[in-house]
Design a protein around this nucleic acid. Sequence first.
DNA 1: TCCAAACCCTTGGATGTCCTAGTATATTGC
DNA 2: GCAATATACTAGGACATCCAAGGGTTTGGA
Lengths: 168, 168
Amino acid sequence: MPTPLPRDPIADARLNWERHGWSDVAAPMAAITAIMRTQQILLARIEGVLKPFGLTFARYELLALLSFARGGALPMNKASALLQVHPTSVTNAVDRLEGAGLVLRSPHPTDGRTTLIELTPEGRTLAKRATAVLNSEVFGQSGFAAQDVDQLIGILGTFRRNAGDFSG
Amino acid sequence: MPTPLPRDPIADARLNWERHGWSDVAAPMAAITAIMRTQQILLARIEGVLKPFGLTFARYELLALLSFARGGALPMNKASALLQVHPTSVTNAVDRLEGAGLVLRSPHPTDGRTTLIELTPEGRTLAKRATAVLNSEVFGQSGFAAQDVDQLIGILGTFRRNAGDFSG
DNA sequence: TCCAAACCCTTGGATGTCCTAGTATATTGC
DNA sequence: GCAATATACTAGGACATCCAAGGGTTTGGA
């Protein structure tokens, strides 16, 4: 990692906002920018852990989702909805996972439009191993205090509900 | 936007983690996944606002950074460090902004290795206009309660400092 | 019954990010 | 002064994401 900056660039941006008369939105700007940067840091950690497995985060998420599905299979559109990514992103991920022998496509028994993604035994094993390392190397050392974790889950959960992610 | 899911997929993932005996890391897993998803939602809102200006978030960030710099110019490496992105990402952004006439490259007066990025008058004007809309459409309607904004800034600020982003 | 609308997936194109490697310029050490 | 090292930027490649468009399948109303 590069040398830390002497000053927090997001705090500086907030000061710049205030200096330009945008004090009313300076704080949310800083919070949103911090979310962007935090996501970048976390994604880099996750991808670093997954790289030895030949996985990216997008592919891992799909494998993990399938491993929790009954029968280890899901329709493409269902996966797209649950992962909340564009259908073409799922197509892309399945192409690569299929090439690696971790999943396979099979036709839906009753709906000819639908394609099922099915976990292979290799895919299931790899998902398990990758999850174990992610748990110990990333989630188990997140750098968030326990009460901060709860705060984040609450704040971001409310935000996601209001954004229309889910209604429950 | 698609129909909201009946259940929160991240809460479900957390339950799956707990069912598989990973209760000790289920909460941080949920928090990290929520940050990923929140970033995705916010980025989509920002890019939607910037699209009419012909800007992406990456290009806007660079324009905004330059607009706060003295003289409206910065070395490429400085911009890379402050935006905390890879130098090649800055090269990419500058290529496109230069093509749009919003910035221009000029040689550093004393260091022949360094290239300065300079804001053009058009770039400065566009940055101002885009910021005004971002402020009113995104930052001013973030969907976060005021006290949650403060919580986020604190929690994520600590995280970023511990991650080595800055030392101040 | 039959056709239009809705739905599902894939292809192709644009963008952004990172990594590796390569070129050019500065700085440091002998 | 010159060679070795460090720094700055760019080129090319791999991935992921989205959007727009296209072709196949189902469904539902006329």
